[in-house]
């Protein structure tokens, strides 16, 4: 009986409990960058990094309900502000400015007047109600003179799903986070137009050091390291602009 309880107790232990670990909650668009950041951070400090990813809105709700995360890399600045107001954040700071790209089928030249190209087309974009990249996508279409009723919008749960639909051929056109472009290109040949950043409000992505992790040393180390030159280089490499320091 004792042995049975011991086994159950052992099975119930988190696998990473022994190592010094920082637990990241990462917006879908930032997942590839966060994985690269995690590798570099682990190399430098020896701390382990665990990454949970999803739509910013979903992660926010999970955090307000006590999800076990130390640092939240959001896709916007609204949720981080909210967390700070609610006393759930210890500190917040911008870590990246998101860039948007228009993806078109291979051989199509999106440089030539995207308006005519896109009118009436099925376009995958993140749901603006859920994802900041969706808001920027809608603003971009509007700047091109296209309301959502002028195209057939396919609303993805987060910007990662836009990449899935594009890579599986379920959508020909899409407004995608530049950070997800390398993963898409590894699976499918597409042509791409970088969306000028004055077509939409800046996608200011903030990070939050959660109050529940105030005493986690690895979280403190990651927080400082996030502003380092190494981290900045990785973010730029993944298609982000980095906010001026």
């Amino acid at each position: 009986m004792v042995r049975l309880f011991l086994i159950i107790w052992l099975l119930a232990q988190p696998v990473t409990a022994l190592a010094d670990t920082v637990r990241l909650a990462v917006a879908a668009n930032a997942l590839p960058a966060a994985e690269a950041l995690a590798r570099a951070f682990t190399d430098e400090t020896g701390d382990a990094v665990s990454i949970a990813h999803g739509a910013t809105g979903k992660l926010y709700v999970q955090i307000t309900r006590g999800a076990p995360f130390d640092i939240f890399l959001s896709a916007d600045s609204a949720r981080p502000e909210r967390l700070m107001r609610e006393g759930l954040g210890r500190a917040s700071k911008p870590y990246a400015l998101g860039r948007l790209v228009l993806v078109a089928p291979e051989g199509v030249d999106p440089q030539s007047a995207p308006v005519d190209l896109l009118r009436g087309q099925r376009i995958a974009l993140a749901d603006p109600a859920l994802a900041p990249y969706g808001v920027a996508a809608v603003e971009t279409l509007a700047a091109w003179g296209l309301g959502l009723d002028a195209v057939q919008p396919l609303l993805a749960e987060n910007v990662g799903q836009v990449a899935v639909w594009l890579s599986t051929g379920n959508a020909d056109y899409g407004l995608l986070a530049a950070s997800l472009l390398p993963d898409l290109r590894a699976r499918r040949d597409v042509s791409v137009l970088a969306v000028a950043d004055d077509l939409h409000a800046p996608i200011a992505q903030d990070a939050v050091w959660l109050a529940s992790a105030a005493e986690v040393p690895a979280a403190a180390r990651f927080w400082d390291w996030l502003g380092s030159d190494t981290a900045t280089a990785i973010l730029v490499d993944h298609g982000y602009d980095v906010p001026a320091r």
Binding site: A55, G57, V61, L130, L154, L155, A156, E157, W165
Partner: peptide, 22 residues
């Protein structure tokens, strides 16, 4: 599904979106 109102946004997906948008 693609979360399209009236075409693929079923009850369960609507609940999911509602929770995420508070």
């Amino acid at each position: 599904g693609g979360n399209i109102p009236g075409s693929t946004r079923v009850i369960s997906v609507e609940i999911y979106s509602a929770v995420e948008t508070l």
